[in-house]
Every structure is written in structure tokens, then in C-alpha cells.
Design a protein around this nucleic acid. Sequence first.
DNA 1: TACGTTATGGACGATCCATTCCACAACTGA
DNA 2: TCAGTTGTGGAATGGATCGTCCATAACGTA
Lengths: 221, 221
Amino acid sequence: MARPRAFDERHVLERAREQFWATGYAGTRMDDIAQATGLGKGSLYGAFGDKGKLFHRVFGDWCTAVVEVAEGRLADGPDAEAWVRLSGYVHLMAENTASDTERRGCLLAKGAAELAQHDPTVAGRSAETMTALLTLLRTEISAAQRHGDIDSAADPERLAALLLTVVRGIEAVGKAGLAPETLRNIADTALAVLPMPEGKKRSATGRGPARENQRGAVTAT
Amino acid sequence: MARPRAFDERHVLERAREQFWATGYAGTRMDDIAQATGLGKGSLYGAFGDKGKLFHRVFGDWCTAVVEVAEGRLADGPDAEAWVRLSGYVHLMAENTASDTERRGCLLAKGAAELAQHDPTVAGRSAETMTALLTLLRTEISAAQRHGDIDSAADPERLAALLLTVVRGIEAVGKAGLAPETLRNIADTALAVLPMPEGKKRSATGRGPARENQRGAVTAT
DNA sequence: TACGTTATGGACGATCCATTCCACAACTGA
DNA sequence: TCAGTTGTGGAATGGATCGTCCATAACGTA
């Protein structure tokens, strides 16, 4: 019927994401994206609308990825391993920030900081993402409570909010300049202070389980 | 000797801060600032250099204020009240974010998110600020430990990093859209999970002490 | 009071950037 | 092979924005 597209949409979105991630919304020019993707401006605008729509697309995909990473590690499996999943997730998030040597931070945080105040779409999407993460964490905490790894007297909703705050906070203080090793320690400490059931004991200063290797994989934070 | 300035520098910096705070660095125009302050561009540039220098000035002042707020509440007073000071500070920070109805967030977080990656001045200043806060929190935690309000087996350095992360994290999740009441709960929960000495007991879900009124005062977050 | 110096503020120039436009290319169905 | 449709890329456009310039104003000093 007509000339087919010569580019892969996913690929273009990836490149666009890199740009927005690196330089923020206002800081990236459409020319940058055109150059980074190899597309002409005509194709770019024809396929994605305008700069705002393109960012919303990228931002939305990122939020989806953030939740998917969490879903891949939380709220699925036997109660006996809930604690391991939970601490694995928190450590993973800390590791992501700690190994972000370029200090790009997280596109979710960056986008929200820059645009949430004036852009309802961004504000809404980031709020959705937060509540989704909250739900996953709460579910996992409840599981850990059933298995006796967390004091069942504690309110899982509140602990989930605390953990989410710590995870997002690690990102924030990391961007603000705290050392990578400090960030990893924070994750350990946060897990260590979660209330244990009577009898069991975890040291508040103790190190967490061995952390997994990161191998430079870029994971949505 | 010459014509004196017709404006108050502090006042101008305040207005400039409002602008940067509301719309970020890239998002504010020098014309906006000129209009907001009533100054002409000539005066503005004559007095502050260029946009970058003006922002650095505003950002630096903000960082100073953030530390001063903390200094005004922490690390000064008898050990017996250390815990009260600590929880007062954490609650104050949460309240600031919770009552930030305009969703402006914190200029420190916003500026760091937007510029730290490419602007060494901003990066350095925000890092300094974090370590200053860390020191204040550590001092206060040590005091609380001496008085027996926090388990002395815990590493004050680590607990301080955790609390700082929670405070900054509250700002982040607040900007991302969590409800004000949730933010206040997070502060309570974070304080509740701090390790108590053997024998004493705090409930992980218990509410903190009554929170002070905020009266709409704008405090550096 | 006259002069040198600094402040003022608005017009101006130069640049940057999002978006549009257009001539041309690639493809399909008739 | 031709016509119709959609994709392509780069030039052009129009508006926005940073920073400068300059004629003038306000002050201290001689």
C-alpha cells in the first residue's frame, strides 16, 4: 500500500530514552534525538508526534519497566523465600544506583522532578508506578511475615512505604553525591532494622547476604 | 563614589529562588526573573553575572539553609532530649514535603537531578550538603544512644545514612505522588524501626509523638 | 556645582530550537 | 508499469531566549 518504515520503533525509543536520560527533557534537542537515531526530523515527527508525546512514550515505557523489574523479583514464590526476594530487590536497587557511574540517576525520578509539577501525564504515571511498587512490596512483606522473617505485629503497608522510600531515597542521595559503598550499606541497614519476630534476632549493623553481581546491565531503576 | 543599587540583593535572590524552584533551571527565563524582581536585565547581569552564576548563588544559599535548619534542630542540647530532637527533625522534613501542595519538591533535589551530572559546582555543593547532614544526624544518634534511646550496638554512621536516605526519599516519593498522610506515616515508621536497647520496646506500627504545626512556613528542605 | 563612576532598564543582536514543509524515495495493488 | 500512498531527510520558518549595549539616572567627591 505504501512505503514501509525503515527503522525499528523499539530501537528508536531506546535511543531517545538514552538522550532524555542523559540530559533531561528540556536539555535534549530533537536534533540530538534525530542524530542519535539516524532518523530525519520528518520521520521522527511523523512517527511520534512532538517532543512532549515522545517523552511521554519513553517515560511510560520506563515506568512499565520499573514495575516489571519489581514484579520479576517480588510477590511470586514461596513464603519461605520472601525475605530473600525482598532483600535481593532492595540490594539490586542500591546496586543500580551505586554502579551508575555516570550519575544519570533514574529517569523516573529525573522526569518527575523536572515535569511532574506542570505535566499531569507525568505526574499521574509516576504516581501509578509508586502505588504499583508499594503493592508489590506489601505483598512480599506479608509473605515474609507469614514465614516469620518479619514481625507479624508490624503493619505491612507501612513497612512497604518505608522500603519504597529507602529505595527511592538511595537514588536521591546517590545523585546528590554519597559514595557507592555508602549506598550499599544503606540497603543493608534498612533491611537489618526491619522488625524481627520475638526471639529471632538480626544485628542492626550486620551485613546483609552476599550481593549479586551486576555486570553492568542497565536495569530500570 | 557612584550610584548605589536601588534593590536589596537578598530580596532579589529570594525571588530568583522562587522562580528556579518553581520551574527548574532550564525552565526559567532570565526575563521571568527580571520581571519577578522588577530589575532590568542590565542590573541583573551586572550584579550576578549570568544565569549559571545566579543559579549557583541561589543553589548555594539553599544548601546552606538546609544545613542550618538541621543545625537548628540537631546536635545541640542534652542527650536526654536527643531522641526528641531527632524525631522532631524527621517529622519536620516529612511535614515540609507533605504540605508542599504545589509539588515543587526541594530545590536541592531538583537542582541536583537536573544539573549535578553536568555541573561540577552543583554536584560538589550537593555532596557537601549531604555529608554535613550526615554528620549532624550521626552526632544526634550517638547522643540518643548514650541516653539509651537507641541500641548502642548499632553503628551510628549507618543509622544516620539510613535516616538521611529516608528524609530525602520522602521528598522523592512525595514528588512522585504519594499522599501526604502516607509521607507522615513513613517518618513515624522510620523512627519506630530504629533499634531500641534490650529491654525497652517501641512498636513498629506505633505513631510517633504529636507532630508540630507547620503554619505554612517555608523551610528549606 | 561639575565630574567621574556605577546603576538602570529596555531595545537589540545573535543564536538556538521545535516544528513544518517539500521534493523525492520506496513500496503495493491494479 | 503506473498510480496512489506513506516514509524520509534536510532546508526553511518562526518564535523564544541569553546576553550585550547604550543612553540616561543617581550618587559621592572635589
